[in-house]
Simulated assay, not measured.
Amino acid sequence: MPTDQTAPPAEIAAPVTGYRLLLPDQWAQIPLRHSTEGAVHRILEDAYTRIPKDAPPDKVGPYKRELARRFRQAVAQAQQTKGLDLYLPVKPMGEGEFNFSLGASILVSESLLPRRSGANGAGEPTDVAVQLLSRDGTEGADLSSGEIDSSLAVRREHVAAANPDRGVELPSRRVEYIVSVPGDPNRWFVAAFSTIGGGNPRDELAEALVEWFDAVMANFRWRRG
Rank of each mutant, 00 (worst) to 15 (best):
A68S: 14
V75E: 00
G18F: 07
V60D: 00
T81Q: 10
T49L: 06
R116F: 02
A13Y: 04
A28G: 12
A78V: 01
Y63A: 09
D85H: 13
P114R: 02
S134D: 14
E124I: 02
G121I: 08
D142V: 15
R135F: 12
L23F: 14
A141C: 10
L102D: 04
I12N: 05
D136K: 10
A74M: 08
A104G: 14
Q131C: 13
R20C: 04
V60W: 00
P89H: 07
Y87H: 02
W27N: 00
V75W: 02
T126H: 13
P114V: 02
D54Q: 08
L23Y: 00
D54A: 10
K53L: 06
F100Q: 03
Q131M: 11
S109M: 12
R135C: 04
T49V: 05
G123H: 15
L132S: 06
K53P: 10
P15M: 08
D127Y: 06
P57Y: 01
L133E: 01
G121L: 11
N120W: 11
E66I: 14
S105L: 06
D54F: 03
E139R: 06
G123S: 13
D127K: 07
G96F: 10
K82R: 14
L102K: 07
V90E: 03
G118S: 08
V40K: 02
R65C: 11
M93P: 04
T36I: 11
S111D: 14
S145R: 10
T138S: 08
G61S: 05
S145F: 07
L113R: 14
P57V: 02
V75I: 05
A68H: 03
G96R: 04
N120H: 12
R20H: 13
M93G: 06
G83A: 00
L102G: 01
A104N: 03
Y63K: 04
L113W: 03
G83D: 01
N120M: 09
F71M: 05
I30C: 01
G118I: 04
F98D: 02
Q131T: 08
R65E: 15
P31V: 03
T17G: 15
Y63V: 02
A119Y: 12
G38N: 14
L132A: 08
A141H: 04
